[in-house]
Structures are given as structure tokens and as C-alpha cells.
Amino acid sequence: MLETINVSKSFKGKKAVQDVSLYLDNGESVGLIGPNGAGKSTTISMISTLIKPTSGEIKLNGANTINKPEKIRKILGVVPQELALYQELSAYENLKFFGSIYKMKGNDLEKRIQRALEIVGLADRQKDLVKTFSGGMKRRVNIAAALLHRPQILILDEPTVGIDPQSRNHILETVRALNEKDGTTILYTSHYMEEVEQLCDRLYIMDYGEVIAAGTKAELLSILQAEDTVKAELSKMDEAFIQQVKTIDGVRKAEASHLQLKIIAKKGSNLISELVHLADQHQLQIINFHTETPSLEDVFLHLTGRTLRD
């Protein structure tokens, strides 16, 4: 349906996005994850025709859209990271304005406004000014404005940043319903791994402007099939101890956070006995430890050497 082929974008000679290739099939829900500055928003801006790529192609059903953006705009709904709304207007007035410039009018416009407000659960607050809404409600109006023209593809750029858990759940449920019930194709970016795990069939992982891994959850998790993740709680933290843990045969990564130590090691390593031995040497107590099933977060850590929120 929609694909980008080796798309790159440079700003003043500095590459923000490099050779990104991704595709969205009809009705799919695809996640684009990466830390801040990974190039997700730039990639989305190029797909949604707001900026032109420096090189590469963006195709909709096989036709290049870069020089003819009108066609893709008709079927694309974009929920930007910022609240693209007029704060001094009510939710209804905002939707009416955006609907009218989509050339909708009369009863049709009215029905679409009410439908969009129902989807995001704000029909009863439609006459209130946006500036009086909570952060979560504003984000829901932001989504409603992108749904007015019933887009086939909905792109959401970190739609849950800085909002309360209740609004976050509401947004996630809304996106899921749009995908599963209405068949809307979703491209969802976030740096919350759990959101993407919950919503998306396939994932693209971006870092430093490049796609570093892609696939279904199972495919991505298989990257860590040959590894174990061990978490240990220590009585105290000792930097020399951590450095020595990293030298244990088969250990790929060791990261400490407060009194928690997370170790990724090759399956079959003699990790536990070595760990106990080292703790003894450094006069540390291991209060508890357990082996975890690898998560996508671990995959990201494995691929980039840092966590999503770094």
C-alpha cells in the first residue's frame, strides 16, 4: 500500500534520516520505535508530504507521491506530536474549521464531527474551549482532527507523550479499535516499547536516522534467542564488581540501575556460579536473582547499547 525506498533527509548537510525503507500493508498496524532524535518524526514528515526527502522514493500503491502529494494527503490522517489545534476555539470549532477546509460541509460535516468526537470520547465536552482541557483531552481532540476525513492510513507521532495513564489507555484503545474494527492502517511511533508491543503487528527500530531492525515481534525477539537475561538485586553497588562481571565469559552486557544489575549473556554460560563467586570476592550479597524472557526493550538494548529513554 505505502512504502518508502531508501529515503534520506539532510538538514544543512547533516543527515537526519538515512536510507530508510519501510512498508505498510493495508489494514496493518506498524510501529516505529526509537529514542528521541532517532529520526522518527522526520520520517513521518516525509511520508505525510510535509517535507521533501533529499533522496529516495515514497510510493502509494506503486505511484511516487513526492512530487504529487495531493493523492496521499487525501487518504492520510496525521496526528502530530504537538497539539495542532487552536487553543482559543472549542473542540467543535476546531473540527468544524479543519473539516471545512477538507471541503466538507452541511450535514456530512456535522456527522463526521460528531463521529470523530465519539471515537475519542469527547462528544459531551465539544463546546468547551481546547485551552480548558487537560493534556490528555487535548491529545484526543488532536486525534479527532485527523479522523474527520476518514483516512485509510493514520500516522500517530508519539500521541501519548506527557499525559495521564487514563487518557493514555483511552488513546491506545481508540487506536486499536480504529485498526481492528474500522480497518484503518496504522503507523505508530513511540519511545514507549510497551505501547508498540500492545498495538503493532510489525515494528521498525530506528536509531541515529537509520532503521536498524525490522520484523514482527517474534522475529525481533528471535535476535535474543541465543541469550539469557539475568536480573540480580545486590546489597550494595560496587563499580569494580560490575566491571568484573562484564569480563565473565559469555556476558554481552551488564547494566546497573540503583541496586539492580541486568546482565545479558550467551545461553549456557556459567553465569550464576561466576556471579556468586565475584560477589563473594567483593563482599556483596546477592539478595535475589532471576532469569527473564527477553523483551523488545532487551532487543533494543542489544541492538543499540542503550535504552529507549536514553
Binding site: S48, E70, L76, P80, E82, L85, Y86, Q87, I101, Y102
Partner: peptide
């Protein structure tokens, strides 16, 4: 522009000169 409303207007395919 700061609030990206201008971008949202562009995405509606309405002529920017309007």
C-alpha cells in the same frame, strides 16, 4: 506554525495561498 496547525492545514490539500 509553532503549534503545527499550519502543517495540518497543508495536509488538507487546501491551497496554501488561501
Amino acid at each position: 506554525i509553532r503549534q503545527q496547525v499550519f502543517n495540518r492545514i497543508l495536509l488538507t490539500n487546501s491551497h496554501s495561498v488561501l
